[in-house]
Write a protein that binds this DNA or RNA. Structure first.
Length: 477
RNA sequence: GCCUCAGUAGCUCAGCCGGUUAGAGCGGCGGACUGUUAAUCCGUAGGUCGUAGGUUCGAGCCCUACCUGAGGCGCCA
């Protein structure tokens, strides 16, 4: 076995004077003498000092950018100013040469677009290793948050047979021949001959299954991949993304909003506490990037300042009615600068949401009680008979990070809403059963995992916070 | 799906009104360097100008189509 020590452990335990072995990749080799080595265990690098009298030139010649090496030597306080510790190398062994004439990465700033094409190498960069360490931390914090509050982790199915989830275009799952599928009497594809005996798709939401569980276990959450076959080409959409969907019995829309706000703040606070070095690097990266922008296009708050601000301030809570009233009083509305009309009954457009979050309140905003006609059938009808108990959490920069609602628990109202939405109640009999037999008031929401990671890391494009992005026309790796 | 912009060396870009042999920085390669921190210094090799047509005496530059990428919008998380 390898008797090696991780860099993170050395920096923590500081075994001054001890002989240690480290393995990792070269980030820089300066003055033919100083190696900056990283092994993924820590955001930073460890300096290795090479004495040319101890290490042969045949070895030092091969110490290049991102070459993999093993070093044995003594751990010491550093004489240089840039770092606290270093290893004085006794031996250096090349574990993996790197042919720099062919290697695409370079020790310099490279664009996200270029690195995205090299997804098998991009995690080696400081930016992406920081992003993916934080992605891990957020995922872990999700489980910790719910576990600590008595929620059960429910594994919703990836392949589903229900076609009424209503959250967007679905990817079909089939084993039928694409050339000659079996046809029924009407000349249409006969999915009864397919693997599952019916048409099946990749899930667009675990909510409906979540409701089943919540009405037995009380409080549950799902956390898994979700698929949307929408032709969405934006920096905020993926065809395959991860979603967290808590569902709670005996929660009304206000309880639901309280949980959503606490959840967002917890995730951010967790990363602030556990990934300070990574965040500091990303904060700096963002500041550098914004230097090239005109002053009015720069963020008002730095990344760290913004995260602290969100954790330490209450989200603004307004109703849809209030949102429309505020927008109608706004300068851009009066000057005719909005592209889309503001009118009760129309959905809020991205430009309207951005005005509320970034100009009017300058903090996260929760809008609730939307007109029934622009929201899904399962959302609970309010007493005014015009709005439903839906809520969206809007974040600066990325827009909607959470969408949720109190669910309609009254069978007759639900059937009425289904019929008006063009959904056949008989196809969702099991869903109606939940109301018929011991139904309970309940609520839930969905949080887009990548959007939250995007907000926390300050990355501009959602494709840069998931290891292998799937978008229209792209499924590499 | 709609709209806008872009594609020139490995990367990031410049290239004037269409006019000789297409440039720079970084990176690579060769060399120097025993305290460097985006190391530095000297030298050097890299190009079918996204693809296919067209206009023209002449196209990196103008026109058309397509491909790819980015941004905005819509759909949403």
């Amino acid at each position: 076995m390898y008797n090696r020590t991780e860099i993170a452990s050395l920096l923590k335990n500081q075994p001054i004077g001890e002989k240690v072995t480290v393995m990792g990749w070269v980030r820089a080799f300066r003055n033919n003498q100083f190696i900056a080595l990283h092994d993924g265990s820590d955001a930073g690098t460890l300096q290795i000092v090479v004495d040319p009298e101890k290490i042969a030139a045949t070895i030092t010649r091969r110490i290049g950018f991102h070459a993999c090496i093993m070093v044995t030597g003594s751990f010491q306080s550093s004489q240089g100013a840039g770092q606290q510790f270093e290893i004085l190398a006794d031996t250096v062994e090349i574990l993996g040469d790197n042919d720099l004439e062919k290697y695409p990465l370079q020790p310099k700033r490279q664009t996200m677009e270029f690195l995205r094409q090299k997804a098998h190498f991009r995690m080696r960069t400081q930016t992406f290793s920081a992003v993916f360490r934080i992605r891990h931390a957020v995922a872990f914090a999700v489980h910790k948050f719910y576990n600590d509050r008595g929620f059960y982790y429910l594994h919703a199915p990836i392949i589903t047979g229900s076609d009424a989830e209503g959250a967007g275009e679905m990817f079909r799952v089939t084993m039928l021949s694409p050339d000659k599928p079996p046809l029924n009497d009407e000349g249409k594809v006969d999915f009864s001959k397919d693997f599952f005996g019916k048409a099946t798709n990749l899930t667009v939401s675990g909510q409906l299954q979540g409701e089943i569980a919540a009405l037995a276990l009380g409080k549950i959450y799902t956390f898994g991949p979700t698929f949307r076959a929408e032709n969405s080409n934006t920096p905020r959409h993926l065809a395959e993304f991860w979603m967290i969907e808590p569902e709670m019995a005996f929660y009304d829309i206000i309880d639901n909003m309280d949980l959503a706000e606490a959840f967002c703040k917890y995730l951010i606070a967790y990363v602030l506490e556990h990934n300070a070095t990574d965040l500091a690097f990303l904060d700096q990266r963002l500041k550098e990037e914004e230097k090239s922008l005109p002053t009015d296009k720069r963020r008002e708050l730095g990344l760290l300042e913004q995260l602290e601000f969100v954790v330490n301030n209450d989200f603004v809570r307004i109703t849809y009615d209030e949102a429309v009233a505020i927008l109608m009083q706004s300068k851009p509305y009066k000057k005719g600068q909005f592209e889309f009309p503001v009118e009760w009954g129309r959905d809020l457009q991205a430009e309207h949401e951005r005005y509320l979050v970034e100009k009017e309140f300058k903090k996260p905003v929760i809008v609730r009680n939307y007109p029934k006609d622009i929201k899904a059938f399962y959302m609970r009808m309010n007493d005014d008979d015009k709005t439903v108990a839906a809520m969206d959490v809007l974040f600066p920069g990325i827009g909607e990070v959470i969408g949720g609602s109190q669910r309609e628990e009254r069978e007759s109202v639900l059937i009425d809403r289904m019929e008006k939405s063009g959904i056949h109640p008989e196809e969702m009999d099991w869903y109606l059963d939940l109301r018929r037999f011991g139904g309970a008031p309940h609520s839930g929401f969905g949080l887009g995992f990548e959007r939250m990671v995007q907000f926390i890391t300050g990355m501009g494009n959602i494709r840069d916070v998931i290891p292998f992005p799937r978008t229209p026309g792209n499924a590499e790796f």
